[in-house]
């Protein structure tokens, strides 16, 4: 138990790295996922095909393979990235964007067509229809699943442990090596720090979800 206290600074380093990965790739995934979603609802068929292809590949490929692609395969194609956080953020972003895209798209689709028709009937232009009627409704349905996507992303940052990033899980594994008798405590410490992020986020998602259901 004492060794856990002794190792607290290391836990903290791992925790901040995990948080950094989660926040940066979270923001980037929201941006790219939304762009991808506009591809999927675009009037241009070729963009829709590209969007659908990327999303399907993203959702059916294990994250580990996405990591291998950006850490090892891309350099062998001549695109060399620095090791560590950069390819990890790219891999997490590419993977998570597919899920963000699906959440946003189902949000847009959940808005009844009648809503847009009604908006036009009372004389709103297409920009006004989108910003005043469609988006506010879509956003409400999109937020809870998006938070779930971001929670999953936080947990997925652990995969970076296998690819040259010392985040929480890698820290735990290193500590398990340095203090063999305290393996269980070290891993429980790691679990605790993940829960510090995921449980409050989950509670928030649940809260928003309930509000949305009632306001319908």
């Amino acid at each position: 138990m004492d060794s856990v206290i002794e190792a607290l600074p290391k836990f903290w380093d791992g925790f901040t790295t995990t948080l950094f990965l989660a926040v940066v790739s979270g923001v980037l995934s929201l941006v790219f996922g939304t762009i991808l979603a506009t591809f999927r609802v675009s009037p241009l068929k070729s963009l829709r095909i590209v969007g659908a292809t990327l999303v399907e590949i993203g959702r059916n490929t294990p994250l580990t393979l996405v990591f291998i692609f950006f850490v090892f395969i891309l350099p062998s194609m001549g695109y060399i990235l620095p090791l560590g956080r950069v390819p990890a953020i790219i891999a997490l972003t590419v993977y998570t964007s597919a899920f963000v895209c699906e959440a946003v798209r189902s949000g847009i689709n959940s808005v009844n067509v009648g809503q847009a028709e009604a908006a036009r009937a009372i004389g709103l232009g297409s920009n006004q229809t989108l910003s005043l009627v469609v988006l506010p409704q879509a956003l409400r349905t999109v937020v809870p699943p998006l938070i779930n996507v971001l929670i999953a992303l936080t947990k997925n940052t652990s995969v970076a442990a296998g690819f040259a990033v010392v985040e929480l899980t890698a820290t735990g594994r290193g500590l398990a090596r340095d203090y063999p008798p305290d393996v269980i405590w070290m891993l429980l410490g790691v679990a605790f720090f993940y829960l510090v992020i995921t449980i409050p986020s989950g509670t928030l998602a649940g809260y928003i979800e309930r509000k949305v259901v009632f306001s319908r």
Binding site: F72, P75, S76, I80, L81, P82, L83
Partner: peptide
């Protein structure tokens, strides 16, 4: 897995 990064100058 360390070899390619060494060749490429990543480590």
């Amino acid at each position: 897995d360390c070899l390619d990064p060494l060749r490429n100058g990543q480590v």
